[in-house]
C-alpha cells in the first residue's frame, strides 16, 4: 500500500534529512595554479583543510594562501565543510588529503581530539602537518597560526567599556557555544568585563549560529527584554550584522545602542561608516592563509617552527578605517 511506504519514509524524515544535509557540503576543492598529478612532481603540493568554505573569512584565508603559494611557487588546494558543526565531514576531507599524498598538509581543527588518529596516519605516511586557526591535541602537528581569540575578546570588551563610559547593561549575540572561537571570544570579553569593569553588567548571552536572520531576531528580543541595554557585542560577522539589522528594523537612532562587532565584510564596514556600529575587531585572515603556506614550505624543508604564531587582532572604527595597516586586514 502506498500509504505505509510513505509513512515509513516520513518517519525517519527529520533525522535523515539532517544527516544527509550534513554530507552535502559545499566543500568543492579549489585548486590554484596548474593541476599536477601526484605529490612527487617538481612543484610542491600543499593540501589545506579548513573549518569552513562558504564564509567570507575562509575565503579570505584562501586568498592569502593562494597569494603565498604563487610567490613561493607551490600549489595549494583549499577545502572545508559547509558548516562548522560538520566535524565528521571535515575528518573525511583530512583523510582524503592524506590519501592523496601531498608534500604537506595545513589543517584547522574543528574538534581538537577527533583528529588525533588521522595525525598518526599522516605521520606514518611521512606528511608534515602545520596548523591554522585551531589546533589538534596531537604532538605531531607543527606551529599553529591563529588569532589569540581570548585577547581579541578582551580587546572588544575594553573598547565597549570605553564607549559606554564604563557602566551599564550589555548583551552578547554569540555564534557558537561549542567551537573554540565562539567560546574564547565570549570568554575573553566576559572575563575582561568582570575583572576590570565592575559597573558593567552582562545581562544576556544567546547564540544565533552566525545566521543573519536568527541573530537579528535574537538581538530584537534582547533589546525588548532589557530596556536599559546600552551595548551589544556580536562575536562574528553574521551575529554583528544581525544586531545591526535589529537596530535598523527597530528604527533606533544610529549610535543610541553601542554595537561592537567582529570580523569585517562589506555590510559591517558600511555599518561602521554610517555610525550604526561603533567599531569591530578584525583578525588577519589573509595573514593566516599566508602564514600557513609559508610554514608548510618551511616544514617540508625541515626547518624548526615555533609552536604558535599570533597573527593578531585589531580594533577598527570610523576613525582608522582608512589607515593602510587596517585596510590591509579588512576583507569585503
Amino acid at each position: 500500500m502506498r500509504f505505509s511506504k510513505r509513512t515509513a519514509l516520513v518517519a525517519g524524515a527529520a533525522t535523515f534529512a539532517l544527516a544527509l544535509a550534513g554530507c552535502s557540503g559545499g566543500g568543492a576543492p579549489a585548486t590554484s595554479g596548474e593541476p599536477e598529478a601526484g605529490g612527487d612532481g617538481e612543484t610542491l603540493q600543499i593540501a589545506l583543510v579548513s573549518k569552513g568554505f562558504q564564509h567570507q573569512f575562509w575565503q579570505a584565508v584562501r586568498t592569502g594562501a593562494e597569494e603565498a603559494a604563487e610567490e613561493l611557487g607551490v600549489e595549494v588546494t583549499f577545502e572545508g565543510p559547509a558548516a562548522e558543526t560538520e566535524i565528521d565531514a571535515q575528518l573525511q576531507m583530512l583523510q582524503a588529503a592524506i590519501d592523496r599524498g601531498p608534500d604537506a598538509i595545513g589543517y584547522a581543527a574543528l574538534d581538537p581530539q577527533a583528529c588525533i588518529p588521522l595525525y598518526e596516519a599522516a605521520e606514518s605516511a611521512g606528511i608534515p602537518i602545520v596548523e591554522f586557526d585551531a589546533g589538534c591535541e596531537s604532538e605531531y602537528g607543527q606551529n599553529l597560526a591563529a588569532t589569540d581569540s581570548m585577547a581579541a575578546g578582551a580587546l572588544a570588551a575594553q573598547n565597549m567599556a570605553e564607549l559606554i563610559g564604563g557602566e551599564g547593561q550589555v548583551g552578547i549575540v554569540g555564534h557558537s557555544q561549542i567551537n573554540s572561537t565562539g567560546v574564547e571570544r565570549r570568554d575573553g570579553f566576559v572575563e575582561e568585563i568582570e575583572a576590570n569593569y565592575p559597573d558593567i553588567e552582562i545581562v544576556d548571552i544567546q547564540y544565533g549560529d552566525g545566521d543573519h536572520l536568527r541573530s537579528a531576531d535574537i538581538a530584537k528580543a534582547m533589546i525588548a527584554a532589557h530596556p536599559d541595554l546600552v551595548g551589544l557585542y556580536g562575536t562574528n560577522e553574521g551575529s554583528a550584522i544581525g544586531i545591526v539589522n535589529a537596530v535598523t528594523e527597530l528604527g533606533l537612532p544610529a549610535g543610541e545602542l553601542t554595537i561592537v562587532g567582529f570580523d569585517s565584510g562589506a555590510a559591517q564596514v558600511d555599518a561602521i561608516r554610517n555610525g550604526v556600529m561603533a567599531g569591530a575587531i578584525t583578525q588577519d585572515p589573509i595573514g593566516i592563509g599566508r602564514t600557513v603556506v609559508e610554514n608548510a614550505v618551511a616544514a617540508i624543508n625541515g626547518e624548526e617552527l615555533d609552536d604558535f604564531t599570533d597573527t593578531g587582532s585589531y580594533w577598527y572604527d570610523a576613525e582608522n578605517l582608512e589607515d593602510p595597516e587596517i585596510a590591509a586586514v579588512l576583507y569585503e
Binding site: 564564509h55 537579528a216 555590510a267
Partner: peptide, 8 residues
C-alpha cells in the same frame, strides 16, 4: 529583509 542575498 537582510538587504542582501546570503548564499550560505
Amino acid at each position: 529583509r537582510l538587504d542582501s542575498a546570503q548564499p550560505q
